[in-house]
Each structure stands twice: as C-alpha cells, then as structure tokens.
Amino acid sequence: MTEQAITAKLPSNGPTWSRYRYPESLYRFGTLLVVVLFLGYSLHFLNVDIAKLIGALGRLVGVVSDRYYPPDLEYVLDRGYLAAILDTLQMSFLGSFAGVCLAVPLAWFSAGNVTPHRVMFPVGRLGVISCRAIHETIWTILFVSVLGFGMLAGVSALTMFCIGFAGKLFADEIEAIDMGPVEAMQSAGANPLQVFLFAVVPQVRVAFTGIAIYTWDVAFRAATVVGFFGGGGMGWYLKRNVQQLENLRVAAIILSIIAMVLIAEFLSGYLRSAVNRAK
C-alpha cells in the first residue's frame, strides 16, 4: 500500500489525539493560569527584580569564588572549634533523646485509633502541631530570652523541634498498626496503658527505633545553626565570623558543617539498616 493510499483512507479532518479531553483540559489550563498569575503577582508584590533573579546563580558562583575562596581550613582545625563541634554533637543527642522520649506519649495521645481518651486526642495533636509549626530558630530565640545564652537554650529548642518531628512520624506509624491485638486486649479488659504497652509498642518498636535515629540526624542539621541565635556550638562561631566579615573562615565553617552533616547522615543510614536487619 502506498503512502497516498493510507492518507486517502484517513478522514481529512478527523479527531486528533490529545492527552486530556475537553472539560478536563479547560480545568487544567485554568488552574495553571491562576497559579502563573499568582506567582507573577507575588514577584511584583515582593519587589523582586527579574533580571537579578535570572542572574542570581551566576552571581552566587562569582561571589563564592571572589570572597569565599580559598576557605581558611586552619581555623576549623583549631582546638576551640573542634570542641564546638563536640558540643553541637552532644546538644543534638540530648535534644533528640529528650524530644523522642516526650514525643512517644504525645504520639500515643494523638493517634486516632488508640488514644486513651477523647480529651487527650486534641491535647496531643495540638502539642505536636505547635512544636512542629514553629521553626527551630524561633524556638532558640525564645528559649535564649528565657534561659539565657548557652547550650541549655539550644538543647531545649532542639527538644521542641524533635517533639514536633518525631511526634508526627510516630503518630502516623501508630495509626497504621494492626488493630487485632488492640481489640483482643480491650475485650479482655485491659486499661489504655496496658493496651499501649502490650498491643501497640511491640508492633511499632522497630519503626520507632528507626524514626528516633532519623530524628537525631535531622536534629544534628538543626543543631548546626541554633548557635547562630545564641544556643551554643558551631553556629556561634558562624555568627561571630559572619558579623566580622571573615568570609574565608565562614566558608571553612560551612564546609565543616557539610562534612559533619554528611558523616551524621551516613551514620544514621548505617544504624537504621542495622536496626532493620536485627528486627
């Protein structure tokens, strides 16, 4: 069959194929238009210079190579700074330990399926949501204003952050359990605490351990900056050098933060896979 024969067989203006049919394509187009208009208006409202926005990444490269290169690596190998890294590590451990310990009961209250009482449910939910909603730096500033500068404020802020972070993941995990054991214990007359300890905990133990390790990993990332607002650790060095415009030292500190975060991430990945294997 020749090409002309095939084209002759097709209707001249038949339906052309398209991925979306008429009403759906209109909705999609409308949504896209609204989103684009909103973004354009936002750029206008925020006084963003489009030319600057387009050239920003190029400028970033220029600024980094101009002002931040070469990093002053001797500064971060100094004894005082290494002690600050250790402080940061200790803060992140304490914050995540306290946060995880407090998050377990809150998650129990805020899990819809095993919550001990109707009144406890909103209490748990509200506690977790308000810890989550406020950024760790704001928690740090608040705690510094109450407890003074130092690591106590940093640890408290990290604790709040970890309650919010771990509490939500814990509650999600509890809500996904098998309800069989829970119902069995309830029908045998167990009180809510017994149900939690003997029907819920055995099912979520391994997942909780993994989440706790992950929480530490994320808390360490947050711990690198709580010092910036007076919480102690590496962030304090960052703040001092940023304010003194010691750009080469700032570059070295940022590099050291990246290196430490990478080590923490590797460690937490290893520990989590070890926990999963030992289950």
Binding site: T137, R221, V225, V242
Partner: peptide, 16 residues
C-alpha cells in the same frame, strides 16, 4: 539538603 536554610539565606544575602 545538608546546608541549613539559614546558611543558604546568609550566602544569598551576601550575593544579591
């Protein structure tokens, strides 16, 4: 992911 948003903001404030 490993650079905190505050640090990113510091870098960009000095750049733009």
């Amino acid at each position: 992911r490993s650079v905190h948003e505050i640090v990113w903001a510091l870098i960009f404030v000095s750049a733009v």
